[in-house]
């Protein structure tokens, strides 16, 4: 407003009077702009996950209930998490794959460093390799893939045909990344806590 006022008004030459007036108009206009910007922030910030969502608790899964070969889906932070009790054959297949054959060579395991390679050992549970815990969301556009389907004996995404192997690694596009592995740890031999 102050700035517009300046444009309309100041037609005269650059006297000291005009300079002082210019400064006043610019200062007022700048102040108004700063105020408006500061006012906008709370209205943007309120869209962030709120304190109760951020504090949302972990989910515990009792592994004793899961048969060999079975994939169980549990909910963690509103998302499906697949817990797969893999058979020896599943593990064998996953191990046989060379890193060079993978579309995404990174483990995507929240429990490991970000650059860990996507070997089966880095994908499966630590020291309990029959357990595979992955977030059940296709890394393409967020659909939930179907288990025990597709050429690679892992998951097949019905939306756009991405396929994952028995370590949850993407083997056929369009998905760009392996299925993500959530942070989890073993509470006991037969129980994990996700989150």
């Amino acid at each position: 407003m102050g700035v517009r006022g300046k444009e309309t008004l100041v037609a005269s030459t650059g006297t000291a009077e005009t300079t002082r007036r210019d400064f006043l108009y610019i200062a007022t206009g700048a102040m108004g702009a700063v105020g408006a910007a500061a006012m906008v922030w709370p209205f943007i910030s309120q869209l962030q996950p709120d304190a109760s969502v951020l504090a949302m608790s972990s989910t515990e899964v009792d592994l004793g209930q899961i048969q060999e070969g079975q994939i169980v889906t549990v909910k963690w932070r509103g998302k499906p998490v697949f817990v797969w009790n893999r058979t020896a054959k599943d593990i064998e297949e996953a191990r046989a794959v060379q890193l060079g054959q993978l579309l995404d060579p990174v483990a995507r395991n929240a429990n490991l460093p970000a650059d860990a390679p996507a070997t089966d050992a880095n994908r499966a549970a630590k020291d309990q390799e029959k357990w595979l815990v992955v977030i059940g969301i296709c890394t393409h556009l967020g659909c939930v893939p179907i288990g025990h389907m597709g050429e690679y004996d892992g998951w097949f995404c019905p939306c756009h045909g991405s396929e994952y192997d028995s370590a949850g690694r993407v083997r056929r596009g369009p998905a760009p990344e392996n299925l993500a592995i959530p942070p989890y740890h073993f509470v006991s031999d037969t129980k994990i806590s996700i989150g």
Binding site: G5, L9, R21, L24, Y25, A27, T28, M31, V34, G35
Partner: peptide
């Protein structure tokens, strides 16, 4: 603090504008 300073600036701006 912000509003009071802003109001002060607006007051002087208003005076300048209306001086004519």
């Amino acid at each position: 603090i912000f509003l009071i300073i802003f109001a002060g600036l607006l007051y002087f701006t208003k005076k300048k504008v209306w001086k004519a």
